[in-house]
Simulated assay, not measured.
Amino acid sequence: MKQTERKIRLSIRYEVISEGEIGCIKHLCNELMAYQQSKAQIRPELFDSMCFETRMIPSVRSAKANFILAAKDGDELAGYVYSNISPKEVYANEFATFFDMDSVANEDVGCLSQFYLKEGYRNKGIGSVLFQRSMDWLNSFESIRDRFVFVSNGNDAALNFYQGKGFNISHQILDGFITVLRNT
């Protein structure tokens, strides 16, 4: 077999990251923001101020419960998923109101908030494992009836992925900047 035809073997392991250790995914979170900006066709400049410190840290602090799962290939972080349980009011802020508050029966919602895989690790089943473990965690909360995912415009691969996993488009916010998907 030629060297260029050689299959790359991955030895992926999944590790829960505690809130105190989230700094280890800072670079991946910042890569996610840059990736979303590169795909955005509507108001990409909104991503200029989005980074680990402005997105991940405030979200973790405002949540009632957090789940961060990293995919590791040896010592290299290949990707992560971040989900949380938060009061529904968290999603009505100075940036936007993400959904109709009256449409959510309970006080708390589940959200798959961030999901990122480095390019060389996509389309290998790793994302499906991260997604499923995130959903298992969200589903472990009996009081959570509403689960949301927010997809930035231009990220059609993510939109298709979530729709293939049972999420449905609910609506768009900020003139199409974000598509809100819901699974109840």
Rank of each mutant, 00 (worst) to 15 (best):
V90R: 07
L32C: 11
D175I: 00
Q114I: 00
K88H: 12
F161G: 03
G127A: 06
G166F: 02
R145C: 11
Y91H: 07
R61L: 15
I12N: 06
Q41Y: 06
P44I: 08
N160E: 09
I25D: 08
Q114E: 14
N153S: 08
D100R: 04
S49Y: 13
G164W: 06
G164N: 11
Q3A: 08
F47W: 11
R13C: 11
A157Y: 05
F161E: 01
Q172M: 05
S113I: 04
V109M: 05
G23N: 11
L69R: 01
Q132S: 15
E5D: 14
L117A: 06
T54M: 04
T54I: 03
H27D: 15
N168I: 01
E53C: 04
Y121V: 05
I25S: 10
N139A: 09
T184A: 12
I85L: 06
C24W: 05
G110H: 09
F150V: 01
R145G: 13
E107L: 02
I22C: 15
S128G: 14
A105L: 13
E89A: 15
L138Y: 09
D100K: 04
S113L: 11
K2W: 10
D75S: 14
F99S: 00
F52R: 00
P87R: 13
K88D: 06
E76D: 14
K64I: 08
C51G: 14
C111M: 11
Q163W: 06
R147H: 08
R145T: 14
I178P: 00
L181R: 01
S38T: 14
A71F: 04
S152G: 11
L77F: 13
H171E: 02
A105W: 09
Y121M: 02
L10C: 06
G79R: 08
G125I: 08
M101Q: 12
D73F: 02
R9Y: 07
G20N: 12
F177M: 03
V151I: 12
I126P: 08
F148E: 00
D156C: 03
V109L: 04
T4W: 12
F98H: 04
N160V: 02
A34Y: 02
G176R: 04
L117D: 05
L69V: 08
E21C: 05
S49C: 14
H171V: 01
L112G: 07
M50S: 15
I42Y: 04
I22D: 04
L112V: 14
I22H: 13
G120Q: 12
S134T: 15
Q163G: 10
P44N: 07
Y91D: 03
P58W: 10
E5I: 07
S49F: 14
R13K: 14
Q163K: 15
D73T: 01
D102T: 02
N106D: 12
L138G: 07
G154R: 01
S59M: 07
G176E: 03
V129P: 07
M101G: 00
V60N: 10
K72D: 09
N139H: 11
S128H: 12
H171S: 03
S86F: 04
G125T: 08
V104S: 05
L32G: 10
F98N: 00
